[in-house]
């Protein structure tokens, strides 16, 4: 697969603050490329530099193999953007908003009409076509925001935190839509600080923190970067300190916590971690109620790499 976006050594400073520090990115055609990081990590700045909206201090950016500049209209015609803030006109109806933004790219009225209809259907807001944005719920506004960005059928689409302040139903609808766009051939750059979303839809993820790329890879590759591969939680009453110490000293175990009858064990890769711990507890006469094992999340990856949670920022 060819590189749709290639960013090399991108540096962006705001006076003393380094917003992007020698950032390298390669986005391949047909993938959902996730930029994950806490607020202020440089995700939006990176997108704005790539789109040639922001001046940057150093580095090079190519899109579709060509240098990206503010006057690269031939590149821009194949780009769609769904910005973090709603980019809608309150005085125009849903239909008119989509038609206006689509009209910036598509001149032929008949073709545009067809594209606008498809975009409305795609985000399922047909019942609200004559409504003004003010009358729409937060979720519907977000969907309209998406429709305005994709109506002209771009080959490359930037989604900058498209699910902020959206109800779960609309969020799922949006995420499904993004996957559908990828499946129909578009390349997606997706930024979020919601790790669950990134895990759910992204094919490749770059983790940013304070303008630095701290990790990248597929979801599995990222999870394999960290020591713990399993979190085991067992509900058992009255587990004594001796047992906890015994488990803590077992091979493959990184951390053990016991609080309110819940024993939480972080383990490395190993086939029998759960069975081994259950056997110990049974041998010592503890009755167990609930047992479950979880895979590490991207938050665990972020936590291990930076020492802080994604949402703490």
């Amino acid at each position: 697969m060819s590189d749709v976006i290639k960013v090399e050594g991108l540096v962006k400073r705001y006076k003393e603050l380094i917003a992007l520090d020698h950032l390298d990115l390669k986005v391949k055609q047909g993938e959902i490329y996730g930029l994950l990081g806490p607020n202020g990590s440089g995700k939006t700045t990176a997108i704005n530099c790539i789109l040639s909206l922001l001046e940057y201090d150093k580095g090079s950016i190519t899109i579709f193999g060509k240098d990206m500049t503010p006057k690269s209209y031939d590149i821009k015609k194949d780009i769609g953007i769904v910005p973090q803030d709603l980019a809608l006109y309150d005085s125009l109806t849903v239909y008119e908003n989509i038609d206006f933004f689509c009209g910036l790219y598509i001149k032929d009225p008949a073709k545009r009409k067809e594209y606008v209809k498809e975009a409305i259907d795609f985000v399922s807001i047909g019942d609200f076509a004559k409504f003004k944005p003010k009358k729409l719920s937060g979720g519907l506004k977000r969907r309209l925001n998406i429709a305005c960005g994709i109506a002209h059928k771009p080959k490359l689409i930037f989604f900058d935190e498209p699910t902020v302040a959206v109800d779960p139903q609309s969020r799922n609808k949006i995420l499904e839509g993004i996957v559908e766009l990828r499946n129909s051939g578009a390349t997606i750059v997706y930024t979020s600080h919601y790790m669950e979303e990134v895990e759910q839809i992204c094919d490749y993820v770059v983790v940013l923190d304070k303008g630095h790329k701290i990790a990248e890879g597929t979801i599995d590759e990222l999870k394999n970067m960290i020591k713990k591969s399993e979190i085991i939680t067992i509900e058992a009453a009255g587990v004594d300190e001796d047992t906890i110490t015994y488990i803590r000293e077992m091979k493959n175990i990184y951390n053990v916590e016991y609080e309110k009858d819940l024993l939480k064990v972080e383990a490395g890769s190993g086939k029998h971690n759960v069975i081994d711990i259950i056997n110990i507890l049974q041998d010592r006469g503890y009755k167990m109620k609930k047992i479950f094992s979880e895979q590490p999340t991207l938050n665990d990856v972020f936590l291990e790499l930076t020492g802080k949670n994604l949402r703490d920022e």
Binding site: L51, L53, P70, Y73, D74, K76, K77, I79, I81, P83, Q84, D85, L86, A87, L88, Y89, F101, L104, Y105, C148, G149
Partner: peptide, 17 residues
């Protein structure tokens, strides 16, 4: 002006001159 509103940002990114 893209530094003033999100709408303007969307216009600035578009292929319209």
């Amino acid at each position: 002006c893209a530094d003033v509103s999100a709408d303007a940002m969307r216009l600035s990114v578009s292929s319209a001159k």
